[in-house]
């Protein structure tokens, strides 16, 4: 219990430091109104807008006001379309969450079994191939992986959709739902139409793969290293001397302790996944937080950018907290 409280309190300095850094960095280049609208409005109009938004006040006053706003869940309002950033979370957060879920699923299904195979066949050719594959997964930028998958499966083989989260038909059907979650898979299940579910899943395959393979490579390496580590432990030697087969050793004895580090790494992977989501969503026109962020970036709407980045800082800090608690529940040694 004490661990949970201490770990929970640690969230706040993390968020505070990131929000402060982003605020100071973004403000060091001047006020956001000039950045977004400079050149399009007259100097007179610009000054009026700056005055109205309060950007002409001392920086320290603006800073404390901003911290106060973030503490109450107000992440600012976009200049370009006037939408509050916290509302974007409700509209687009579901899409990003769904994408991250598919990616993690791919990472687990691909990474963990392959890592075990590589450890089992250590230093033989399948191990070498798998290790190069893991590095290839890491070396391929998610957007290039996305473009390649698109090229092969959507353009050449024509078996999967090119972009988007669902076909227009399904989107229209889901639009009529009363309590939409924004997570299309759940919405499609709510509709109860098998056609909608398969449509949503078909759209998810390529983005999920593009983003998930990156993390799959990480899991593969991690499982391999840890299984090799546990295979040389005394209790595994003991089992081996009892005549347990090598395959069963990997499958039953060495495998479970090797999974504990995975849980810790998931915490860090959430950050990687969110960064990758920005690129994947842009590649596949997957309308999530990352897609929105890229849009605001090209519109030079830095209030919205700052808001989304701060929002993501909160999400990262919270999910790391949850992952750490999970890790502590599973492995009592990490508690402090």
């Amino acid at each position: 219990m004490r661990f949970i409280i201490v770990r929970f309190l640690l969230i706040f300095p993390t968020i505070f430091i990131l929000v402060t850094m982003v605020f100071l960095l973004m403000r060091s280049i001047g006020d956001p109104i000039t950045a977004a609208l400079g050149g399009r409005l007259s100097a007179q109009q610009l000054a009026e807008r700056i005055e109205a938004a309060g950007y002409n006040r001392p920086l320290i006053v603006q800073y404390f006001e901003y911290i106060g706003q973030v503490a109450t869940g107000n992440f600012g309002t976009a200049i370009s379309d006037g939408r509050p950033v916290s509302q974007l979370l409700l509209t687009y957060g579901g899409a990003t969450l769904e994408l991250a879920f598919y990616a993690l699923l791919v990472a687990f299904v691909v990474g963990i079994p392959l890592g075990m195979v590589a450890a089992y066949l250590r230093d033989r050719w399948p191990d070498a191939v798998l290790r190069v594959v893991a590095i290839l997964f890491y070396a391929t930028p998610v957007f290039f992986a996305g473009l390649l998958l698109k090229l092969v499966f959507s353009v050449w083989l024509k078996v999967l959709p090119v972009a988007g989260r669902a076909s227009t038909r399904t989107e229209l059907q889901m639009g009529k739902l009363e309590n939409r979650t924004g997570i299309y898979l759940i919405d499609a299940i709510q509709l109860g139409s098998p056609a909608a579910i398969s449509d949503v899943l078909q759209h998810a395959v390529l983005p999920g793969l593009a983003l998930g393979l990156l993390t799959a490579g990480v899991f593969l390496r991690l499982v391999r290293t840890n299984v090799i580590g546990t295979l040389s432990m005394d209790y595994v030697d003991a089992a081996r001397s009892r005549g347990v087969s090598e395959f069963r050793l990997v499958r039953k004895h060495a495998y479970k302790p090797a999974l504990i580090p995975i849980i810790t790494v998931i915490g860090l992977q959430i950050a990687v996944l969110l960064g990758g989501a920005v690129l994947t969503e842009t590649t596949f026109e997957w309308k999530g937080l990352g897609f929105k962020l890229a849009e605001y970036l090209s519109a030079r709407d830095f209030v919205a950018v700052q808001g989304i980045v701060a929002l993501l800082a909160v999400i990262v800090a919270l999910s790391n907290f949850i992952v750490d608690i999970l890790a502590a529940v599973i492995d009592p040694r990490v508690r402090y």
Binding site: L18, A271, G275, G276, N320
Partner: peptide, 26 residues
């Protein structure tokens, strides 16, 4: 250490974007 940990846990690309905006304005 606290600052380094906070930065370390954050998506690198997002931080790089913020830094890029600041340095070159795009």
């Amino acid at each position: 250490v606290v600052i380094a940990d906070a930065v370390f846990a954050f998506p690198t690309l997002l931080l790089a974007i913020v830094a890029a905006i600041v340095i070159s304005g795009g």
